[in-house]
Nucleic acid binder design. Structure first.
Length: 112
DNA sequence: TGGGTGACCATAG
DNA sequence: ACTATGGCCACCC
């Protein structure tokens, strides 16, 4: 039992490792965790992130195009963008500017 | 058992 | 830029 909860915890752990001012996407996390589970499950985990005791910077996870697809799931639809801009990331029309510059790949950064 | 859904992704046109 | 499809897998009827 709790197999999925382990998966959730792993997702949260990786997300917490994302440096301030950097972002990654759902697929990269799924892949890092072994891609046996699809990136949809990462989104599912983010859905549960807000109820975690430890803070999870879910705003640093966007989709493969650098779009803030998850913003509707925050307390307010603008919170995600505000948090990112506070970290120096520019967002225009729900899309991150210079996405490749801010992109943080767990496979590379944590790679081993 | 099966169908629908989803904070996704890749590919094709 | 757009839609359509297939794959993905946990969850909920």
């Amino acid at each position: 039992m709790q197999k999925h909860e382990d998966f959730f915890q792993n997702v949260f752990e990786v997300v917490r490792l994302i440096p301030k001012g950097r972002v990654t996407n759902y697929g990269a996390i799924a892949k890092y965790l072994g891609s046996a589970r699809s990136s949809r499950m990462v989104g599912w985990a983010m859905n549960a992130a807000h109820s975690q005791k430890k803070h999870v910077p879910a705003h640093r996870v966007v989709n493969r195009n650098g779009e803030l697809t998850g913003r509707q799931h925050f307390e307010t639809p603008f919170l995600m963008q505000e948090l990112l801009e506070k970290e120096g990331i520019k967002v225009v029309k729900d899309k991150i500017k210079n996405f490749d510059k801010h992109y943080w790949d767990p496979m590379k950064e944590l790679s081993l």
